[in-house]
Design a protein around this nucleic acid. Structure first.
Lengths: 199, 199
DNA sequence: GTCTATACCCGGATAGAC
DNA sequence: GTCTATCCGGGTATAGAC
């Protein structure tokens, strides 16, 4: 078994920290909180990491690298316009399922962290995300899939906000799978909640 | 003029605090921040308020009293089921427009504050809000306005999350009025973004 | 109603022993 | 790789003068 799941102590500490950052917020989580949860003392954390900032930095970078790799796969695929939008929406709910803490940190703390130079990549990723979605929506409009009277910028904002906000209540392993949630959400997004709509 | 807009010093301080709580979060806003913004020293705040907690408490209570009064008006009105849902959605965007800071505080800090006894009313209001929306949705279903295959609990969560999340980007006095945003959002919610849907 | 001065606690981070 | 001990800054809150 060449790739066994040996989580290094370092990775374990990052996972513990991510959970706490997600739950309480970055600033409201103390290094003592993290150390307590890991069963060590706060000073010992500094054997592994420079600072609390370094920890959240590492968490966010690795998360975003993975996520945007998947967005790029969707853009590069030969799916039709509607299917690409569906895939991108489903990717969000899969990500909430698999990487909930990272999504929550991003939702709650990215705005604040982004003000510091060290985290300037957060704003770049934000722009990149907008470009991905606007490309998908424009393709949908050009393909005649989307209604012509939509304000695409506004549609983008709604989708961006709504595909991620479920991280507040979704719990992996609960009654609803991420696929169930994605099905319902796509149905609402694509066809609305009222009767008399197509498909 | 019997009701002139004499904002008391106390009210002014609460307004300043609300803006800062909304921008930086409750815990990340210091009493010194508030005092600086008000042009006084931190010690002087304690002439007006017991504590920082009292300030956010007062802000949240008065906001919620006002908001839920309006929900009750909608419930008690003789509008048809679809119109009630539309009114409730529009009320959210009106509230974001008129009381943005309070909405933001509620969105960002209510979960955390709600863990303390002093703020237990937040959980009660949360339940009350769910009851309002579930009532409206059940009326919509009974009236044949909504699709029968919807998971109403899930629809409720989506609406709850999405009608308030616009507080993150909406700016009063900008290009889009709250009515514009509500129009577009209702269109998406009720009929979806794809072509071939009714009305 | 505001200021001065200060108490007290908790936060991130460090140095060096083990 | 962890612990002990500690520094220092900044946080909430208080007492009393003005």
């Amino acid at each position: 078994m060449p790739e066994q799941s040996t989580e290094s102590r370092r990775d374990e500490l990052l996972r513990i920290a991510a959970g706490l950052f997600a739950e309480k917020g970055f600033k409201n989580t103390t290094v003592r909180d993290i150390a307590d949860a890991a069963g060590i003392l706060s000073g010992s954390l500094y054997h592994h990491f420079d600072s609390k900032e370094s920890m959240v930095d590492e968490i966010l970078v690795s998360f975003q690298t993975e996520l945007f790799g998947k967005y790029d796969e969707i853009l590069a695929s030969d799916l039709d316009a509607r299917s690409k939008i569906e895939r991108a929406v489903r990717l969000s709910f899969e990500t909430i399922d698999a990487r909930g803490p990272e999504v929550a940190i991003f939702q709650n703390d990215a705005d604040h962290l982004g003000k510091f130079e060290r985290f300037s990549y957060l704003a770049e990723r934000n722009n990149q995300s907008r470009e991905v979605w606007m490309t998908l929506l424009r393709e949908g409009l050009a393909a005649g899939v989307l209604r012509q009277d939509l304000d695409l910028q506004l549609v983008y904002r709604f989708i961006r906000d709504t595909v991620w906000v479920a991280v507040r209540w979704y719990r992996p392993g609960g009654d609803l799978s991420h696929d169930d949630v994605a099905d319902q959400y796509l149905h609402i997004l694509l066809e609305g909640i009222t009767v008399g709509n197509s498909s």
